[in-house]
Design a binder for these strands. Structure first.
Length: 156
DNA sequence: GCCAACGTTGGC
DNA sequence: GCCAACGTTGGC
């Protein structure tokens, strides 16, 4: 059982979108970075915990909890010439990019990035390191616990 | 819109 | 295989 942080632009797919999807499950598509892809392909397993993070928006932060709900399969958008994510070098025989299903499990209070920076337990978190841009990054058990605690905190 | 940091591309 | 140029990410 591992833990992950996955970034999504809420204008594209928000945590609310996942909550209202059938089975509260969506295909995670559009990853076009090899390191992030390799995490999906090689290290993720069904049932792993996911921090669903909103990026490139007014208040970036963790919007809710989710879990990995499938193994890897080819990302359909790479084959679609009309898609923003089209990859002309990808073929059906040799796909480059993969998707994985993600299922929303719990919505707590929203945890903004600015608040995360003030939590000592998160000091070493990959997301908070200078220059970190990876859309998928591993989260330690300690970081997971600290964030879940905040998501479940009463008030505010 | 700015800009720092990073990944990718392509000439050599 | 180096590395400069370019494109992208993403917080602010």
């Amino acid at each position: 059982m591992r833990y992950w942080l996955m970034k999504s632009e809420p204008d594209e797919v928000s945590f609310d979108d996942v909550l209202s999807a059938p089975g509260q499950t969506v295909a995670w598509f559009g990853v076009r970075n090899y390191q992030a892809r390799n995490f999906m392909r090689d290290a993720m397993a069904v049932g792993d915990g996911v921090l669903f993070y909103h990026s490139s928006c007014a208040v970036p932060g963790v919007a809710g909890l989710a879990e990995i709900a499938s193994g890897p399969y080819p990302d359909a958008s790479q084959f679609d010439p009309a898609s923003h994510y089209h990859d002309p070098k990808a073929t059906q025989e040799a796909p480059r990019w993969i998707s994985i299903d993600v299922r929303a499990t719990e919505q707590g209070r929203y945890l903004p990035l600015a608040e995360m920076r003030a939590i000592p337990a998160l000091e070493g978190m990959a997301l908070l390191q200078k220059g970190s841009r990876l859309s998928i990054s591993p989260v330690t058990r300690g970081e997971w616990d600290a964030i879940v605690k905040r998501l479940r905190a009463r008030g505010a």
